[in-house]
Structure formats: structure tokens, C-alpha cells
Design a protein around this nucleic acid. Sequence first.
DNA 1: TTTCAACACGCAAACGTTTTCGGACGTTGA
DNA 2: TCAACGTCCGAAAACGTTTGCGTGTTGAAA
Lengths: 340, 340
Amino acid sequence: MRPKLTLKQIARELDVSISTVSKALKDSPEIGEDTKQKIKAFAKLYNYKPNNIALSLKNRKTKTIGIIIPEIVHYFFTTVISGVEQVANEKGYNVIVCLSNNSFDREVLNLDLLANGSTDGFILSLAKETMQKEDYHHLTEVINQGMPVVLFDRVVDEVHCDKVIIDDIIGAKKAVEHLIETGCKKIGILSTVDYVSVGKLRTRGYIEALEENDFPVDEDLILKIEDMENSEKEIGEFLKTRDVDGLFAVNEQFAVSAIGALRRQGRNVPEDVSVVGFTDGELSKNFIPSLTTVSQHGTRMGAEAAHLLIDKLERKPDEVESYKTVIVETSLVRRESTKN
Amino acid sequence: MRPKLTLKQIARELDVSISTVSKALKDSPEIGEDTKQKIKAFAKLYNYKPNNIALSLKNRKTKTIGIIIPEIVHYFFTTVISGVEQVANEKGYNVIVCLSNNSFDREVLNLDLLANGSTDGFILSLAKETMQKEDYHHLTEVINQGMPVVLFDRVVDEVHCDKVIIDDIIGAKKAVEHLIETGCKKIGILSTVDYVSVGKLRTRGYIEALEENDFPVDEDLILKIEDMENSEKEIGEFLKTRDVDGLFAVNEQFAVSAIGALRRQGRNVPEDVSVVGFTDGELSKNFIPSLTTVSQHGTRMGAEAAHLLIDKLERKPDEVESYKTVIVETSLVRRESTKN
DNA sequence: TTTCAACACGCAAACGTTTTCGGACGTTGA
DNA sequence: TCAACGTCCGAAAACGTTTGCGTGTTGAAA
């Protein structure tokens, strides 16, 4: 076992000073050609690599960005991470991932931890609990300390920072309009309770689409699900008494649950009922019938977020502060769960 | 914007020395009660938190563990991350995630980067390309420098370190035996090329199960897929000319592709053909019919890996070196894609 | 009054870098 | 012969901590 090589050891070995070694390795003109060669050769031979921690301390930046998400076992978030990782890597940054598990406390904990030198900035999507409590002091505090933060997906007006979102309303409208275009007359929605902002917004899009097309808005066709655990049962009950021919689900899960329930009730998709989901994940692609869905392009969102953050990080200190909100367009992916 | 508070600033503000502040905050008996109170109050008021980077440098450990996986948009890996994260957090460690994208070069790059001070140890699953090249010098080097490494899932004998695996052979046997028990007579397998170790092992398990039950092993019923992109088509072709009544797929993807292809050919699952998958992901749970599958318990694997790693990290230096391989048991989850 | 322990605190080194500054030495030109 | 200059290198500070040790002050015991 041979521990890591340091400048000091090279210096001692070659009988020069530490600063000489440092300069030589950086190809400084201050150092004579032959000394440089000698030092470089030695460093290469023993595979010297500078210690990142020491560099971070000196430079007061770590070249790593923290990403905090509510849960990782979730296709959308993994695509976002993937997007972040990609551009971060291109720009020489590392990515450190933390999970809030939708808990406010864990979100605060992780943020605090990473804010103390471990990262240069954050990309995060708020925990459900945080949005319920409407407590964002941990974020504003971090921002106040000069740390750039980019919020994505689950964002909130109260926090002033860059944001990356999709237009949930427009996305939902696309879905519902597609149902209308393909001949559905009575369209229901499977949504979440309102404090989940995406649920609220997508419900609004659903309503707007109906209104703009002179469809009646029937509260009885709107299901707002709170308990994710029992969503399947709840959806089944709901559908049993609703004579819809079109269904917009605000996520994949709800969509497949609905299809299952419908099938059990002897109703076929898409012949009897067309179904559109939201989020283009593994399920949508592989389900039978495959799901027509609104794709959020998580990878692109992640990439955008990373760009925003890195721009802030590498901005000259005298540039004026300004916060952007980039909206990543959604797109409707037509598959088998709707009539074409 | 108020930048982070340091010991030095507190010291200046309160007109004491840096060391006094440090000791006071650590409740050292060296410091007088009133001074302590004064310092603590001040620190609390301005929310002082020690700088992690400085601590890392001083202690020569970072309290973070690196996890390098081939891809993140993959249910199994996310569950593993989740497991690692959980126990890491309990023990006060952070997790930094890197993606190799199945590329050897990226694996080396990430490892090198993180090895230079950013992490105390690694948990990783080898990139496909790495296993093809059979080049593991980057790992042995890191291990030689005294960094603990835990390999999981895609492991390899050549690297000496702790490992967490499932018994692919036994898992596959469970699957095939279940097919046999439920009355299948002619059982095929959808596998991968042999250099993907899991494919190879699961194929072996398939063969062993057949032999032990006095079933003939028919090479013609074994499909080894190389090109994941076109797996769906390949599976369709394969099934068209095989009159199987049982099918073991080495992953979820293959299983659902098979079911789709069978259905298109007018064959029902599980009535005409029973299908068992491997990996208990979103797909398996939600597909219709839901998939009988061999669960790998990714979360548990991640947790085990984290424990192994942290044990090594916190081991007294004089303890003897020893490498464990823990085998996480798989379990068969019976669902609708097989007859009961 | 002297001596000494106990107490309270500061100094300085260390972790591994980078970088500014200055010093030693040799060469050049007048 | 000597100043001026160039070349090559080292000392030291800095980033933010922790910690062993030294030191000054106090009060009490002798």
C-alpha cells in the first residue's frame, strides 16, 4: 500500500523546494528546462495528481455541484440527473446527489451539509413536505451566502433564483386537446391534491383546454388523489361510476392504473376509453398498449439547469444579478393508448 | 450577500484567538465558562458551521463515498443508490454519484477524479466496456493507495476487494424451477452475450435447472442478445419459430418485449406461454399482466455495500485486511405472467 | 513575601496547494 | 571593476480547521 504522492514528497525526493515542484508541473517559465523535465518525469512516473481538497480550499471552490431531489427511484428524476451529469462533466464539474425523500428536515440537513464548502451551487427540486410547509428559509439563506441555486420541476415563486420548469398548463392542454381531436366527448382527469403544484397546474390546463373547446367542465370527472399508496384502488372506484371516453392522467402511474382498472371493467383502451399520461418513462414505452404521453424531457431540463448554474458560477463578480426561468417545452408522444 | 462565517472572523469580532474560538465551540475545558458562552452565542446567532473542505484537509478524510455506476436511468441502480444513501446518511457520510455510461474511459476518469481527495472510498459496478477489455488497473491502483472499494452486481474476480452480489445462478434456477413446477415443458431463455457476466451466469442457472430436472437443454431455445437497441425485433424473430411454453428473460425489458411479441403472434401469457423476468422494477409491477420476476433487492445490496465500505473506512489501521463477498438472496415474486 | 498550582488563553504547526516576492548567482556592457 | 540585469529558485503567506504546548495571570498556601 503506497499512499498518495504529494508535492512535498516530490520536493524532498528531488531535493528542490515545494514551490519549484508546483511551478515545474505547471510549466512555469520561472523554472529551468532541465529541472522541469526532471520533475515532470518523476511526477509522471509515480503518477502524481494534485489533491482536490487542498485545491478546493485554496481556490475557495470545489468544482462540484449538488443536486437534491425528493426521490431517486423515479424515472423523471434520473433523467434529470443524467442531463445534469452530462453537462457538468463537460465543464469539469462533479455531481453530488442527495435525497430528501420528500422530507423537509432531510432537505434542510442535506442543504446545510453541502453548503458548508462541499459544493459550489445547487440544483434542486423541492420536497413535497417543503411545499406544504411553505418554508423556504433554508434556500434563501444559502442564496444569501452567495451560492447559486437552480430550482427545477417543483419550484416556487417565493424563492428568487434561476428555475427550469415545463409549462404544465400547456402540456396538459396538449394532452386534452389530443383527446378532443381524436374524438373524445367526455374527458376525465386523474390528478393529485392541489398542494402538489404540478397536479394543480395540470388540472388547470385540463380545465382551460375544455373551456377553450366549449366542453363543459364537470367537477365529477376530476379525481384528486392524495394517497399514492392506494391510488390504484381509488382510481378503480372512480372509474366504475364514470362514463368517460377520454382520460388524462397527470403521471404514468395513474395512467397504467387506470388502464388496468378499465380493462377489469371490460372497457378497452383505446377503443372505449383513450388515455394520455404525463412523463415519458419506461412504463409508457413498454406498457401494452404503449402510452400516449406528454414528455417532459428530463434530460434536457437537467442540462438546462446545469448550464444556468455553471453560468452563474463562472460569471465575473461584477456582472449584474439576474434570474432566468427557462421553460422546457413538452411534447406529446403519440402511442397506442389513444386513437390516432 | 453575506459570505460564510469563519473561525477567524469570529475571533476578530470577539477579540480572542482563533484557537480559543475553536476550542470554545468544541466545549473544551481549557476555555473559561463565560468566554465559552459568549463565543457559542455569537456562533449560534450568526449560524456558524465549520467548513467541510478545511476539515477534510485536516483530517485527511472527506466523509463522502463515491458511487460509480454504468447508468442511472435504470431502476435497479437507482434502488442501489437509494440503499447506499440511506445507510451512508445514517453514518454521517455523503454520497457522490458518477456515471460511467458503460464507457471504460469515463470510468477511469471518474475514478481518478474522485480518488484525489474527493472521497474516502468507492462503491461501484463495472462498465460493460471495462468487462470487455478486462482492464482493471485503475481499480487495483486505487485500492493500492489504500482506498477501500466495494464492487457490486457487475463484479470480477481479478479485483481484490469487498463485493456484494446476488447469486445469479440460484436466482435463475428459481425462475426456471418455477416454470417447471407450473407445468412448462419447453422452456426458452432470453439472455445477453456472455461477456455480460450476469447474462452468462443466469444462462448457466437456466441450464443447471433444466439438467437437474431432467429436461433436455436445447441450444436452439437460447437467445443471446447483443444489441440492446434492437432487442425487441430480435426477440420477435426468435419467438416466431420457437414453440416454447415457458420463457425466462434475464431482465425486465426482454420479458415485456417477449410478451408483446407473443401477443402479436396470438399467443397468450400466461395461458400459452409463461414468462419470468429478472429485476423487480416499475415495469414488472405495473405491466399487464404483471410480471413474475426474480427480485434482486437493490436497496438491500446498496445498504450492504455501504456497510462494508464504512466498516473498512472506520476500521482501526492495525486490523488485518480481509475481503468479504456478501451474497444477497434473490426472491421470486409471483405475479400474473406465470400460471400459479 | 515568595512559591506554585490551576486556570484561561494564545502561538504555531499541520493538512496540500498556489503564488507573490525577493534572493543568489552568473553574465554582460561600459 | 563594478553596476545592471537575467535566470533560476526558495521562503512564506494564504485557504479554514484542530491541537499540543507554552505562557501569563490569579489566588492561595507556605
